Computed example of a mutant assay.
Amino acid sequence: MTDPRRTFAPVVLLGLASAGGAAVAGTKDWATTSKSPASLGLLASQTVSADMPLAGALAFVLLAAWGVLLVTRGGARRLMAVVTLVVAAVLVAVTVVAYLRLPDTVAENYRAARGAAAGDLGTTMTGWYWVALVAAVLAVVAATGAVRFARHWPEMGSRYDAPTAHPAAHPADTPADSPADTEHEPATETDLWKAMDAGHDPTERPDHRAP
């Protein structure tokens, strides 16, 4: 049986790559008309197309979720794995819905550009749409692997945690054989001068004083 810890690198790399690919594709046009601009009464430099900004936003959220998953431990990591899976599933749903909605959006963009009825534009999905769809599906696969194996993955050491103050030593922790005299040597230069002003010799140790 494969060691679950060995799934860490391939699953994380797949998750980051798929989320990154979806983020890039989400900034591109996903649908456009298959007819030439001239046949639509447009200039050659003009295009009629539509995008899906929500998919790009979800892809960036997915990238952030993977980043949090990598730096958490225990139950928090397993929770983030579930969150990652939910975001990836929503990304797939949004991408599928785009296939149904974007042709109408292209027609609306044409009416906005020409102020006329769109008619049959022959809308087609661009290559970036298919890149986004594949990336979203792979993101679900990676997130599913994270939900299943995250509890076995190596965790970031505690040395990366925020430093905490060490508690002061309690009087009860003082060794039993310590001298009964609790007077200590001055710790700072200011304490030395105060001791000299009071008539004490700060260099004199308690065990050297006369009885």
Rank of each mutant, 00 (worst) to 15 (best):
residue 22 A to D: 03
residue 63 L to D: 03
residue 89 A to E: 03
residue 39 S to H: 00
residue 118 A to Y: 04
residue 144 T to A: 11
residue 129 Y to L: 12
residue 210 A to G: 13
residue 62 L to C: 05
residue 160 Y to C: 09
residue 172 A to E: 11
residue 31 A to V: 08
residue 137 V to W: 12
residue 60 F to P: 00
residue 123 T to K: 02
residue 76 A to C: 03
residue 10 P to R: 13
residue 172 A to L: 10
residue 65 A to D: 07
residue 12 V to W: 12
residue 58 L to P: 02
residue 203 T to M: 12
residue 181 D to V: 07
residue 186 P to T: 14
residue 128 W to C: 08
residue 155 E to S: 14
residue 8 F to Q: 12
residue 7 T to R: 15
residue 129 Y to A: 12
residue 178 S to Y: 09
residue 109 N to L: 08
residue 160 Y to L: 15
residue 83 V to K: 07
residue 187 A to D: 06
residue 193 W to V: 08
residue 162 A to F: 07
residue 147 V to K: 05
residue 170 H to E: 14
residue 10 P to M: 10
residue 48 V to Q: 08
residue 135 A to F: 06
residue 37 P to S: 01
residue 143 A to E: 03
residue 186 P to F: 15
residue 63 L to K: 03
residue 191 D to R: 10
residue 133 L to Q: 10
residue 187 A to H: 10
residue 157 G to F: 08
residue 195 A to F: 07
residue 206 P to W: 12
residue 99 Y to M: 09
residue 53 P to C: 12
residue 159 R to T: 03
residue 84 T to N: 13
residue 70 L to Q: 14
residue 194 K to P: 00
residue 194 K to G: 09
residue 49 S to K: 10
residue 118 A to S: 10
residue 23 A to Y: 05
residue 23 A to G: 05
residue 64 A to H: 06
residue 159 R to S: 10
residue 13 L to H: 01
residue 136 A to N: 03
residue 169 A to F: 11
residue 8 F to W: 15
residue 5 R to T: 13
residue 145 G to C: 07
residue 182 T to I: 06
residue 3 D to L: 08
residue 138 L to G: 02
residue 26 G to D: 01
residue 32 T to H: 10
residue 119 G to R: 13
residue 97 V to F: 14
residue 86 V to T: 11
residue 72 T to W: 04
residue 153 W to F: 14
residue 159 R to C: 01
